[in-house]
Nucleic acid binder design. Structure first.
Lengths: 178, 178
DNA sequence: CTTTACGTTCAAAACGTTTTGAACGCAGGG
DNA sequence: CCCTGCGTTCAAAACGTTTTGAACGTAAAG
């Protein structure tokens, strides 16, 4: 194969590995995804392992993660009994999957904990000595800011996650905050 | 101190530690930030170490990171020769700092690499055999989608980072994508 | 029924990161 | 000057995560 194709493949796979790591996935997941993305044909576990020079076990586990995140899916290849995978090429869908489960859960947990804190502080207010009351008010101010932040995050996530799949990146021309 | 204040402090610090980890910082950074945020008075390195029950060395290093990210700053306390720190309480500013340096750099690197790939593929086009040309076209399609994604990310980041500090979370009522 | 080709699992090893604490340097006070 | 109190550094240790490969299960093929 021509050198330029190899070079592009390698840097794309490396870049997606880096990106995966950056957003909290394992690097191997990103590399597997990239390898599949740049392959017009489905790939088997063995082919993936060969390609990336990693063990079969690692491929098996990481592919399962990719499936759970909706980033790859199994396809049947006529006459083969191996498992074959293809990448989910709709990046927007991938992002919605990830934001929708992982990030939204995180934000919701945070909001719940903060809400509990507010409840607790208000309930305790009577029993506090003067100096403690001051501190409690201070806490409530800080917590209110954190809540605002997470509510903002929640809204932003909902906007992205809730957008229909018709929406594609080229159509995105404007983001307004105000 | 009243139990409720302790409880709230602890869960907030733990939550910020978790958040820090989630966004790719060390957990200790998040906990230090949280501890400072919930303290009306500046804290010294020793006080932070005591509070979080970690070594002085760790506090020293992590506080330097927090400073670099604009998440805490040193303040002078009259008559003391210790270093004292306070948290940057303006979360919006913190986010702008982080997105503006870390994430934007990441996106720019990605866009440059993708651009290089396109250049390389187009330059090589003539020298490719028929089957390779087909693959090259396939690569170009996939790369174009990745570029769209990163351009979108770039725009979103610019919108947030470029917003003036006057902007606060409560004022954010609407995000439009279309 | 046996063999073969595959995927999965999991314990051990490799690896990377974080934490610690002792050593050090530096400044200010005595 | 020489302490003393402080912050920083860094090598070693602790810890957590990832990778490997051998063992195992399973199902199709012979």
């Amino acid at each position: 194969m021509h050198e330029s194709l190899d070079a592009v493949n390698e840097s794309t796979v490396a870049g997606l590995g880096r990106l995966a790591r950056f957003v909290g996935f394992s690097e191997v997941m990103g590399r597997l995804y990239g390898t599949l993305l740049l392959n017009p044909e489905p790939l088997s576990l063995d082919e993936l392992a060969d390609n990336l020079e990693i063990s079969k076990g690692s491929v098996s586990m990481n592919m399962r993660s990719l499936e759970r995140w909706g980033m790859a899916k199994e396809v049947w290849v006529r006459g083969e009994r191996k498992k074959y995978y293809v990448a989910e090429a709709d990046l927007w869908k991938v992002i919605r999957n990830v934001l929708g489960s992982r990030e939204q859960r995180e934000v919701q947990v945070a909001l719940r904990v903060l809400g509990d804190s507010v409840t607790k502080l208000k309930a305790a207010e009577m029993q506090l000595e003067l100096e403690e009351q001051e501190l409690a008010r201070y806490y409530l101010e800080r917590i209110a800011e954190l809540q605002s932040f997470f509510q903002f995050a929640q809204m932003a996530l909902e906007t992205v996650v809730g957008s229909q799949e018709a929406l594609d990146f080229e159509a995105v021309t404007k983001i307004e905050i105000g």
